[in-house]
Design a protein around this nucleic acid. Sequence first.
DNA 1: AGTACCATGTAAGCCGTTACATGATTCT
DNA 2: AGAATCATGTAACGGCTTACATGGTACT
Lengths: 168, 168
Amino acid sequence: MSLRHALLGLLARRPSSGYELTQMFDRSLSTSWHAGHSQIYPELGKLEAAGLIRLVGEGARRSKTYDITDAGRVELRRWLVEAEPDRSQRSESGLRLFLTPLLDAADRKQTFERDLAHVEHELAALKALRAVQADAAEPEVFAPQVELGIRINTVLGEWLREQISTAS
Amino acid sequence: MSLRHALLGLLARRPSSGYELTQMFDRSLSTSWHAGHSQIYPELGKLEAAGLIRLVGEGARRSKTYDITDAGRVELRRWLVEAEPDRSQRSESGLRLFLTPLLDAADRKQTFERDLAHVEHELAALKALRAVQADAAEPEVFAPQVELGIRINTVLGEWLREQISTAS
DNA sequence: AGTACCATGTAAGCCGTTACATGATTCT
DNA sequence: AGAATCATGTAACGGCTTACATGGTACT
């Protein structure tokens, strides 16, 4: 269960409300993790009860802003540095790719083209993000990670283009 | 829920027992999907009840071998070609990478080195697999996918090495 | 006054993991 | 005969998604 560490990590970046955390999962973390508000609010309650975060203010519209505590920072560092990473992944795209050889040439080409369109869309978004962040004072995402995303999507695109041309 | 389509896909490759399917998840599909036997056996029952697979033989030790039906093949193709892919992923490694900037330089370097060791291990395994499959009559994994894995792990390794050298 | 969005919460049900349980076959 | 491995199944529990539910604030 990494949700608690994801929340600790986001709160270590800056104090936030549950609503803001929900948005961060969609905007910044969507490529690696997702959580809906119905999962986040109860977990914030548990983290507060465990003393890893604390309520630092209530704002307009009953919003509750939390911040990480020293105990939370210790736990977050322990998890990041000392805990053995769980490297298992769940990727429907990977599964689809694995099953692609079952399709005939026409269907296979079609799915590769669909995937290529998606990869190019991602690539354009990442390059736009890189351009924006070059100026930004406080980048939302770690710049080297944008660069990694660009490189991975680039090789993916190259591979897909090769598959499309050899399939026909 | 892609488990049913993963099972349909594996059975479209060759008729298999639940036990063999469990092993295929570990051996061939572990980088994109995982399922334990306690999930597989009940799902095979549901697929059979739905007419997408059928029992084609019972062997030693009460083993039950299933094969995909024509209806199953139709459903598999529909899912692969026509269904909108769910591209959301759950990757603890991605989450860890996202949170890495919170660490100090020494801790960050340490985690990058741990990740690099793992990437190099994967890369060696994939290159060995590529060498073995070059000779094999009936490759277990689609050769181009091994190539893709090699390329992605290569850029990952390069990126990690850059992070390690600029972090110090 | 009505609509849209901000903000938090709970409940039902499904999916997946871990643990429990049993029997068959092979090897030493 | 005992251990290891093959092979299938069920049960309990926890995580995650979807749906239900409510109220506050801003805009027109």
